[in-house]
Amino acid sequence: MAESVEIFDAVFLRQLEALDAALLRLRGNLGEGARGAGRSHGQTEFRGHRPYSPGDDLRRLDWNAYGRLGKFFMREFERERAEHVTILLDCSRSMAAGTPPKHVLARRAAAAFGYLALKRGGSATLAGKPAVEGVSRFNRLLDQLIQSPPAADIGIGDQAAALQSRGRAPSDLVVISDCLEPLETLQPLQALSEKRTAVTLVQVLAPDELEPAGNGLLQLRGLEENETLELELDASMVEAYQRELEKHLEALETIALRHGWTLALTDSAADLRELFIGKLLPAGAMP
């Protein structure tokens, strides 16, 4: 478990607590402190039923409805809807690139989203994994994240399609990815938005993906494609790269605006505080 020590060490856990406290303070300043502070966890207003989905907490299963209707329904509460977060973590090989590697910040951010949701009495689901409820079970989420190294063949588009195929779309979806793939692959994500899923997209790029360094003849090996591309890097080439990257980011931003996503771009060298308070909060995300 050397990787867990490196990614989720004691320092990280202290950072999480500090982040939580900082966000509570900021919420208070923004006039929303009563929302979480005045109620005990779980004591929320009944809102209605929704069909059961694998991974749902069986304690919320409405056995009476099952006895009468023969189908599983989950009881939903107002607070629960707000605090249940589904995390879609990009585990494709491209996340292993960069210094520091993108997957480190991505997994830490995923853990932070989950921790904040659990801390506020909600639950967190890492896409494709069982849901986790209660902050005391936060370690389970960490274990799930540890078991999600950047080695998968599928990207976020495929994972979003899997979510879409489920009966019920998640209410709050956090997507953490480098989004360095053809934007057409985000179609399933757009489809989820149309089902009223609130999407927060955290785009993590490595510093040398934002500003490539060096010059001379380079043989680039793409981790995602496992292919090589030889080119001679110079100032004009770097300029052309940055133009293309800018185009890609603008196109992504356009999609995000069109579908009401919260989009935050960060480089993998940033820390959690910088991401959540410096980027996500200003962008409108309120974890």
Binding site: S94, E209, L218, L220, R221, E224
Partner: peptide, 28 residues
């Protein structure tokens, strides 16, 4: 003096850049 190897996450952007270079540059 040969090509230096570098790992990148994806070649998506780089391929677009390479396509812009219509004629192969003469190796300086």
């Amino acid at each position: 003096r040969g090509a230096k190897q570098r790992e990148v996450g994806t070649l998506l952007i780089w391929r677009r850049v390479a396509q812009q270079v219509t004629a192969p540059r003469r190796k300086r």
